[in-house]
Amino acid sequence: MLNMIKMDIYRMFRTKSLYVIWIIMAVAVIITTYMSKIDYDAIQEEMNRQQAVVEEEQAEEQVNLGMTVVLPTQPGEMVTVFDLFYANTQAKFIALFLVIFAVIFGTADINSGYIKNIGGQVRNRGHLVLAKMVSLLAYTILSMAGYVLLQVVANQIIFGKIELGNTKEFLLYLGAQTALHYALVIISMALAVVIRSNVISMVIVICLCMNMMMILYSAVDNLIHKAGAKDFQLIEYTVTGKIAMLPMGPTGSECVQAVVIALGFVIVMILAGSAIFRKRDI
């Protein structure tokens, strides 16, 4: 098992798409930070002119379920690294890059045919999926850490000042979001392994990031509401829903709930993915 993990980590760092996606993500983060600066300046200017608080207060109340990057900073306040981190993660903007790589990495051995060189020689083929799970954990942590660093640099370059925000809240939020993003990465990888089609898997995971599954969730909600549970909202128990709805200053229980949901999805997807991969012919 350890050798499988070493093999996959070696393979991951020699995959060109890893670096391409990181570069595109970095450029995109700089662009969103720059766009946020333009929005922020426009609001400030408007506020100075009208001496009135415009619709931003309302915007804070809204839940962003799509992929729009909305800055939570109130007019007059300093834009912090946490603000931009929140805006990008809850919009699933970072998740989008992570899941694209997860699909590519998850199916690279299958699509290239390399799996034929190793699939018959391992005692339990399902362990190959577990090895990918570990490699993708390293990838998710590196990507999130890299993103935070990049956001710090982008803030300095574009806003001319680095302010982290509430450190404790930021770390809690970062930890919970990393767990949720990891779960989404594992869902993407497992889907790709099971479906064996990059295109279909990619479409599904992008739809997940854009919360297009809301239609399905609503249908399920309606059924459950008819069964009696009037307050039930399926989206609150999904990874993408949690990514979007986790508040900026999460309480301990909110973080635990997020981690439990992430863990639950990771376990289910890995068990299903490895079981199918073990039993299926190559």
């Binding site: 393979r11 290239s112 034929k116 060189n117 018959g120």
Partner: peptide, 15 residues
């Protein structure tokens, strides 16, 4: 299983 090496169909390589 490790005592069996195989090349099945076309060679599977990372291009």
């Amino acid at each position: 299983r490790t005592r069996v090496g195989c090349l099945i169909e076309s060679p599977g390589l990372y291009g």
